[in-house]
């Protein structure tokens, strides 16, 4: 299938926060409660439509374990978007965000769009990290923020698509050099750059910090 752009995403965060489940929910629309630990990279892909353009999301799901951290770092290169995930029921996964963010900033393009995700929002009774804390962290570090549930699919679509919208907005604003592969954006095989990059910069549909679709 043809596409206007391909965006490379990377999903990062501590082990067990639900990175692979988020990917599975987004690509296959299903939830698998028991999931093998990820080693190396697992791939997922899906087409989305942003502003009338077909965009292919190539998603790299990485290992969250500390032991694989050095391997994971090598996959940041060329990512246009990152989903930085923590588990709202495990405070330590939130505490480690700074470290993940440092890695992401250090090993990727400065323009990379980062979506902070507080996952497992269905487990409200076991909540250990307040929503406001996630929002504050995102605001402080210039991230987009959403709480999601890979189990109920709440906000999963929005998290991936809003990240794509933000990347697309940056392309329109000329912040991303789409010819530089290091930015994690590739022009589709049949696209002409002059027609792919629309002139309008008023298409911003992505939600800002703290927004959600209301289901969580």
């Amino acid at each position: 299938m043809t596409y206007a752009y391909l965006f490379k995403y990377i999903i990062i965060g501590d082990t067990g926060v639900g990175k692979s489940c988020l990917l599975l929910q987004f690509t296959d629309k299903r939830f698998q409660p028991v999931h093998d630990l990820t080693i190396g990279v697992e791939f997922g892909a899906r087409m989305v439509n942003i502003d009338g353009k077909q965009i292919k999301l190539q998603i790299w799901d990485t290992a969250g374990q500390e032991s694989f951290r050095s391997i994971t770092r090598s996959y940041y290169r060329g990512a246009a978007g990152a989903l930085l995930v923590y588990d709202i029921t495990r405070r330590e996964t939130f505490n480690h965000l700074t470290s993940w963010l440092e890695d992401a900033r250090q090993h990727s393009s400065s323009n990379m769009v980062i979506m902070l995700i507080g996952n497992k929002s269905d487990l409200e009774s076991r909540r250990d990290v307040k929503r406001e804390e996630g929002e504050a962290f995102a605001r402080e570090h210039g991230l987009i923020f959403m709480e999601t549930s890979a189990k109920t699919a709440c906000n999963v679509e929005e998290a991936f698509i809003n990240t794509a919208k933000e990347i697309y907005r940056k392309i329109q604003q000329g912040l991303f050099d789409v010819h530089n592969e290091a930015n994690g954006i590739k022009i589709g095989p049949q696209q002409c750059i002059s027609t792919s990059v629309g002139p309008s910069a008023s298409q911003r549909n992505s939600r800002d910090v703290g927004s959600n679709s209301g289901c969580c």
């Binding site: 082990t15 028991v34 630990l37 374990q65 032991s67």
Partner: peptide
């Protein structure tokens, strides 16, 4: 460390 994580993960998985 990997195995410790794996063990923890398995316990968590079986719980969940």
């Amino acid at each position: 460390q990997i195995f410790a994580d794996l063990h923890q993960h398995n316990q968590f998985s079986s719980r969940s």
